[in-house]
Design a protein around this nucleic acid. Structure first.
Lengths: 332, 332
DNA sequence: CTACGTCCTGACAACGTTGTCACGTGAGGT
DNA sequence: ACCTCACGTGACAACGTTGTCAGGACGTAG
């Protein structure tokens, strides 16, 4: 900037005025300055500018998701990005891989970078460690899982309701032996979906057969093995509810292996790409990622703009998408 | 920081020393300062710190990809993120959606933010506009498409070779009428893949039937319609090469519609999730995203560290992944 | 007792920018 | 001829931090 000022024969302040399109600069001087700017390839230093401006925004938000390369996280990121762009804000994306220590580390780093806000898909069980940041005024919006140990806006689906809908969908088609595959019990979404699975049973007066429930599955392979185990039972399930998309994948493989994909019904939680291209198409409970992202963005930017209301927990609808696998009726 | 200094009864500089773990502070003072830091929830301001430090890094790199929510871009982002984390660097992710103006806008924004480097999957045909940034010393690594109009490191696959391998794979199984579906002709990767399709024909002494070639497809729907058109020919193709993953998807739908998925062979360029779960599994030419990302990161950080060598173009291998659809033999 | 080195600590300037205010000029009104 | 006022411009300080250097306290050797 100093060089630009020298070349244009004006003061620093005038260059600043021109660069920021402020009024009160004669056309002639403005011309000289822009020419100098162009000639010297001058780029303003946003960091310095933010430093000086009072209460300035960095125009940076952090998005801490489970894994930027999985479809749900990536979709969320994308819709957040779109909202951010219109606010001239860039998105710092980070993957947590369910690692609690990494979550804290990255949050700390992002706060040091003075992000204007954070979107967090927590990997931790409790987020007490955020107390200080929140007090310091960095808005945080939780997504996918509600916060625990701190207050903050949250955007989730009603996992229990979604799971209940899925299981009812199967009951409605005549199934009574519906297996349930779930993630680690310490993960709140898994607990909620399991609860929904249970309440669907309760509502219909069907007892839950504990042998049909498998908890603690964290990979497609584990789900695949689990389904093989279920099918080996004397009284095997006629339908399967998979509580997470990678578990659905494992279930598809196991059913396919045994040639039962058109015999045993399957509904998964979470949509995945090309689910409709499989044979049969895989019925799922869909979370509308685009909508979730949009709601998250709306909350985040409202907070950044100073919305003082108490934290809210917004619930986005889920919907059963029938594609074939969930509409298979029990044999006989 | 001033408050911390006051509370601890020391000077600013001493606080700085403690915060940055510099030597030469007595344990007692260090204790007082850390206590004050904790009490006041003090967070150092990274921007100010970078401003002062000479030639400091911002620890920020930009990744401009086609769309953070598509599998290829997201995978790349992820592997870049992993490399960046070990360098204590955060990744700013942005989607370009093949929009040239957005590309320039975002590059400009990121340069203003003083990113240490950029990874660019270009949406523009020429990147002359980057000349100034490159001269200013911001390293840029191109990925997926080589740069044009500027010099810079590039990491791509050999698209022509990959396409040739795919078509040869089909020739080897007895096909002679292999249709080719391609993206917009202005996109270099599409041109290269089309060239590879042609050279496979030339090498085997098979003439390219222009009626079997469809250029300019940019969505799954267009590809689906195109394949229907091809199948309506008097002398329809016995195999299809789809030059891009969304075109593969369209081809699968069209073949499925006609019940020809086990009759007409199909090889796609670019792998996609669950390709092996389809029936038949879809054979593809795979680009190793993880490897591409790792190579990109290696180049980028080498440049950031001052590697002065002339730009290089690194080529990552592709590999035909047989899954069933590409191994179907022609009827008769 | 002096000289000198080591160890801690702080004052000050600087990083690149912008908010504040004051200055000089010329136009318009009396 | 004088005053006022708008306008364009620049000097200066400040944002939060760190590099440089100087200074004080203390210990040790001559």
């Amino acid at each position: 900037m100093r060089e630009v000022a020298a070349l244009a024969g004006v003061s620093l302040k005038t260059v600043s005025r021109v660069v920021n399109d402020e009024s009160g600069v004669s056309p002639e001087v403005r011309g000289r300055v822009t020419a100098a700017v162009r000639r010297l390839d001058y780029r303003p230093n946003l960091a310095a500018s933010n430093l000086r401006r009072t209460g300035a925004r960095t125009g940076l938000v952090g998005a801490l998701v489970q894994d930027v390369s999985n479809a749900f996280s990536a979709g969320l990121l994308r819709s957040l990005e779109d909202a951010a762009r219109s606010r001239h804000t860039a998105v710092l994306a980070a993957s947590l891989d369910e690692a609690a220590d990494r979550e804290q580390e990255i949050v700390h780093d992002l706060v040091t970078r003075r992000v204007d806000g954070l979107v967090l898909m927590p990997a931790t069980e409790r987020q007490d460690y955020l107390q200080a940041e929140l007090r310091a005024g960095t808005p945080v919006v939780f997504v996918d899982r509600a916060p625990s140990g701190v207050a903050g806006d949250a955007v989730t689906v009603d996992n229990a309701l979604g799971a209940r809908k899925a299981v009812e969908h199967l009951f409605d088609r005549g199934h009574t032996r519906v297996a349930g595959l779930f993630h680690l019990a310490r993960v709140p979404t898994a607990r909620d979906r399991f609860a929904g699975y249970g309440s669907a049973h309760a509502e219909r007066g069907v007892g839950v057969d504990p042998r049909l429930v498998v908890l603690g599955l964290s990979s497609a392979e584990e789900a695949e093995r689990a389904v093989h185990g279920l099918l080996d039972l004397d009284d095997p399930p006629t339908a399967v509810f998979a509580g997470r998309n990678i578990l659905t994948e494992g279930a598809v493989r196991a059913l396919r292996d045994r040639g039962l994909q058109h015999t045993v019904a399957l509904v998964g939680f979470d949509d995945f790409p090309l689910a409709d291209l499989l044979d049969p198409g895989i019925s799922v409970v869909r979370q509308d990622v685009g909508r979730i992202g949009a709601v998250v963005a709306e909350r985040l930017f409202a907070r950044i703009d100073g919305d003082p209301e108490p934290p809210v927990h917004l619930v986005v609808d889920t919907e059963v998408v029938p594609r074939g696998s969930g509409e298979i009726r029990p044999a006989g």
